[in-house]
Amino acid sequence: MITDSISVPREDRLSAIRTSKLFWPLAALALLLSFNLITDPSFFAIEYKNGVFFGSLIDILNRAAPVALLALGMTLVIATGGIDLSVGSIMAIAGATSAWLISHEVVNSLWLILAISLGVSLLAGLWNGLLVTALGIQPIIATLILMVAGRGIAQLITNGQVLTFSHEGFEMIGGGAFLGLPLSISIVICSYALALLLLRKTALGLFIESIGSNPIASHYTGIRSNLVKFSVYGVCGVAAGLAGLILTSDIQGADANNVGLWSELDAILAVVIGGTALTGGRFSLSTTLVGVVILQTLTTTILTHGLPVQYTLIVKSAVVIIVMLLMSAEFRHQMKSLFQRGQRSE
């Protein structure tokens, strides 16, 4: 009896931790990192040279930045019950726009370049929103349109070539450093902080989850579903544009054919690994961020262990399957009962 009353709360607390959304993604990340620690102790080494930090971990975060931005917008879109396939193309559009502005010397001010490129991305995102809300087109189809057309538009802007340029200020976005860390990391942190503030200090986050969980009931409750969805696609567009600018600035050129190619899939994967259901409803930006880091760590791990790049995709999908299985309550339940049956038969 006494042991009972002690063990029950602890059971409860343990299971509360285990069912917490952050648990499985973080566990997967920890596993990946410890694998690296064992096979390559230098993985965790961080050097400080000329006021800048270097190391695999920093590299992972830096490379993860564009997908982190995409996944931010994607989380919100998915939470409303939608999906955005066009983010890769919006990256290309934003990159092409900025490269065109610089190389044709249309404007020179960094802020104007940013404002115009992000403005174009916003329009692209709102276009998706318009198709989804006003015309009622299924999100997957509506954004497929821009996914295909968007890359075409970007190619038109760059004339089908890799448009290279040099602009001192603009190069800082993908290549600069702040507090000894790549600037892109700060951009990601600021974007997530801003989003969290906006979503959780206002009722926007609640409305988004409500719409994704039950659109009909939300309509009855007086939530402006269409306006919320429209804005969320806009935000997703801007976030994608920012990701595109980071990559474009990093290579000092706009490659309309390849920038952000297939990265919408990485973004969706990160969201799903982070535990936000594709059916919409509850979302969590922090777990999405963990999902992004898992994906990039995986890619980096494969590369640093000398595995051919071709394996990346296969290993990635295997890890995704494992994380998803672990997150599924049904699967855990079945494993548990399988385990118990095994015990009983012993």
Binding site: A203, L204, F207, S213, A217, G222
Partner: peptide, 26 residues
């Protein structure tokens, strides 16, 4: 037409009032 199944009891109760107040007056 009523329940927002995934949201908590608390959020379900305050939802209509919150929607009436608007998103910025949380």
């Amino acid at each position: 037409e009523g329940l927002i199944g995934e949201l908590s009891v608390k959020e379900n109760i305050i939802l209509a009032l919150q929607a009436k107040r608007g998103w910025y007056r949380a």
